[in-house]
Amino acid sequence: MGYATVEIDERDCLVAFGDADLVALAADALRRSALGADQPDARRGSRLAATEHPERVMLHDERVGGVCLLPRAVLRSLAVAAMAALAARELLAARVATAAVIGTGAPVAGLLTALVNHVVNLGEVALWPSHGEQGWPTPKLTAHAADRGLMLSRPVELERALLGTDLVVLAPGLPEATYRKVELGMLARGAVLINATGEQPAESLTRAVGRILVDDLSAARERTAVPVRAGYRVAPEPMALGEQLCRPRAGWEFAGESVLVDLRGVPGLEVALASRLYEIALVRGLGVVRHGLLGSKGGQLCAPTPGMN
């Protein structure tokens, strides 16, 4: 069957991501996951498939009869950024807050975009390490942050980025040696720490925080239990992020109590986000249109090879 295939690269994904209704997508994915919905994607007719190129993923959108190729790692990091924005917006009590985003590359660009656009009570966001990716933040995003009275800073030392901070986001791809340097005592009282690395949070953090919220409770339960050593504080039992955010004024309920949000990925969010990015790309003329036939290779769907017109 013939399709016009649109290929979106990392830069265009980030541009489209800035226009997406991230919080609504993340909230819907959490709600459907909590309900145990058989079809976690509210955008019926959309599905993701592997391609012959491991670094890319293919979206089939039956609603518009189109196909979109996206960078797999970028899509995953943007889905995490959307969930992080939802958690930060709901859990930070209504006060002017400071934030620190720790990491580099596209994940940080996505997280910064999500925080600037959807967390309204931030006063400053520190980006560490100070040698960020060239071109990020973009002038448009910097101007938007300035219009909201939000200051972006790049401290040289990690300790300075963390000291007294209300919200810390550990980005995907962050080296273990770095995220294990983060200690709760550095942060503000009642801080929210979002672990978006995809890795097990440090034991010292899980035992120090007052609450642990996870987007996928089943994944948290599958983790290997850490033996409790004599004299050590027992880590709180993980709770479902979706259930907590359904309760009114969740941020006020946790005010003064440190919260660790451990993001492992919610079924359906990636496909819903990919579908939305594809819609925005079509409207804004983003990406490269490649024409060709979809076929199969080794039992997998495959897309036109790069350069095919």
Rank of each mutant, 00 (worst) to 15 (best):
F254R: 03
R56F: 09
H60P: 01
C302A: 14
H60E: 14
A79W: 01
V23D: 01
I102T: 01
W136K: 02
Q200Y: 08
V119D: 05
G268A: 06
L75M: 11
E243W: 05
D215N: 05
A250G: 04
L35C: 09
L150R: 06
A177I: 10
L59S: 08
A225Q: 07
N195E: 09
P54Q: 08
D21V: 09
A220M: 04
M239F: 00
V214T: 14
R160M: 15
V192M: 10
V261N: 01
R56L: 15
P137Q: 08
R223V: 10
A93Y: 09
K181V: 00
R154I: 02
D166A: 14
A49C: 11
E270H: 10
E183H: 13
L141N: 11
R56C: 11
G103R: 01
V283I: 09
L122G: 06
A87T: 06
R221K: 08
A16K: 10
R229Q: 11
A84P: 03
L301F: 07
E222S: 14
R284C: 12
A97T: 11
G105H: 04
G231N: 07
Q134S: 13
L75P: 03
S153Q: 11
A274F: 04
A20I: 12
V6Q: 12
V259P: 04
L167E: 02
M151N: 06
L205E: 04
L25E: 08
R47L: 15
L245Q: 02
P306F: 10
W252F: 09
K181E: 15
A235W: 02
I280P: 02
L158I: 01
A235Q: 10
R56Y: 10
H60G: 11
A171I: 06
T5C: 14
T165N: 03
C246S: 03
V182W: 02
G299W: 10
E133T: 07
E203F: 04
C246P: 00
A29K: 02
L127Q: 03
P227A: 06
S258W: 03
A88M: 05
S258K: 01
M239Q: 14
P71Q: 14
L163Y: 06
G268S: 13
S153V: 14
R189S: 15
Q300M: 13
A272Y: 02
A143S: 06
G190Q: 05
K297N: 03
A219Y: 03
G18N: 04
Y278Q: 08
V119Q: 00
G287L: 11
P267E: 04
A49E: 11
L277D: 03
S258D: 15
L115E: 01
A49S: 12
D61T: 06
T178D: 13
A220S: 10
A196C: 04
S77V: 06
L78M: 09
K140A: 11
L193G: 01
V80L: 07
A49W: 05
L294D: 07
R233K: 13
L286G: 06
G2K: 09
E203W: 12
A220I: 10
L92K: 04
A281G: 11
M186P: 01
L86M: 10
